[in-house]
Design a protein around this nucleic acid. Structure first.
Lengths: 245, 245
DNA sequence: TACAATTAGTGTATAATCAACACTAACAGA
DNA sequence: TCTGTTAGTGTTGATTATACACTAATTGTA
């Protein structure tokens, strides 16, 4: 790497711009939503886009992603991971732009939206119902984010990042169904989640029609074992599997 | 993304350099090897590094990776996937450099090494025995590549990309053991691989000491089902799981 | 005040899969 | 022909998954 070292001359080498884009997911009345901003200027004026921006010369990629995230939602300390880097030469009509995409999961009770100077609106959209077309190749980025989320759900406890502090087991099952797109057996779900030991019971219940619901909390005292509960073993073939992980 | 559109001015915005680095794996007498090049110039003069280089303004990231791959090994049409993007501000002492890392699998009978102007040597090293320290953060990149390879092995048929056209089932088992770092049961491996239907028998056998070995070929006629054979279901916690996929 | 409706949560029987390991097969060389 | 060596198959008990029937605790209403 870092070759052509002999001929390397920073001032002459033509450089692409580098941005970060962040796919921010949350749950809104039991449905998966993504945050989009509406563009005020050319190109793609008026189109909805993923929040993002240029990286500063002295910040890391993840720091840039966290900065964007906080600028749009006001939240910090949420789950964030690098998704993929998109760099087709013509993805931005202005100039060569390489975008490092991240995806973030925000708990459903922590959202505070903020509009910025460059965007005319910020809004949550159900993932299944975004206003097409999105700007740039953001549709592709979103698709990849959803499939990454889906596949990680199967072998990590990521889903908890979407739920509030306390929640019921059937709400958790709902998320899994939402994202995996398939019905799960109630009984088996109960057994698996209980046996996995990732939840701890609270003394809270929630009243409503029918039998009251016991509320649970995600155990955070388990060292770094983020990856304990696994809904099922078989994996889907998703886009990220074909050219990524 | 692509914000600060109002204030955007390509000529004023300070841009990082973008490179691709490629982690090229192959198999060499039943051991996993990685291709490294020796640097001729500062920084890290004399150190071994991953092959890579700056991207051209009009080529895609993957095209850049394939170009580097071909420059070093002379091979085309091999398995290549994007690994991760590394962009810490101080990873290169010269200037801000963001590197999009790829990893490639080259069949063990197709390697043709080439030295380039900027490197004094090119060589395969066993993954467990690379000449430390590597240049830049290449050790980190390599570690991540190995763990990606390991985890994908468990739910894809990637391993076949490392083997020659025809091979024996026990050679395949060897690769799995190599990369997963654990003993597998011969009988169970046979049964699983046979039942999966990803292999097709050839009429070839290989003679040697003991009973001759039947040789097999990977079935390529199965549409796009790259992800059929799965050695086992449980997944390891690897680096990419913690902040990636 | 019983009982229907509703949501929560448990138990269980069968099927599928895994893991360990003992076994048979086919060759070379002494 | 016997021994060593590598290839490949069969079998069994344990574990886990799946389907689905069941019990539990509440509210609303006849």
């Amino acid at each position: 790497m870092e070759e052509s070292a002999a001929t390397y001359d920073p001032s002459r080498y033509q450089r692409p711009s580098v941005t970060v884009d962040v796919v921010i997911f949350t749950l809104h009345n039991r449905e998966l939503h993504v945050l989009l901003v509406q563009r005020r200027h050319w190109p793609f004026e008026g189109c909805w886009a993923l929040p993002g921006g240029f990286i500063e010369m002295d910040e890391s990629l993840e720091a840039a992603a966290r900065r964007e995230l906080e600028e749009e939602t006001g939240v910090r300390d949420v789950y964030l991971e690098q998704l993929y880097t998109f760099g087709d030469p013509d993805r931005d009509p202005r100039t060569r732009v390489i975008s490092v995409a991240y995806f973030a999961l925000v708990q459903s009770d922590r959202q505070v939206l903020r509009t910025s100077d460059e965007t005319s609106d910020v809004r949550w959209f159900p993932v299944q119902d975004v206003p097409l077309p999105l700007a740039f190749d953001h549709q592709r980025i979103l698709t990849r984010a959803v499939s990454r989320l889906r596949s990680k759900l199967e072998y990590t406890t990521l889903a908890f990042q979407l739920l509030p502090e306390v929640f019921s087991i059937l709400e958790l099952k709902d998320i899994y169904q939402q994202i995996l797109g398939e019905e799960l057996d109630k009984g088996n779900f109960y057994r698996k989640i209980k046996e996995s030991g990732v939840l701890e019971e609270t003394s809270l219940v929630r009243e409503g029609r029918g039998r009251p619901t016991r509320l649970w909390r995600f155990k955070r005292d388990r060292g770094d074992k983020q990856f304990v509960f696994r809904w099922r073993e078989d994996r889907a073939t998703d886009e990220s599997r074909k050219g990524d992980a």
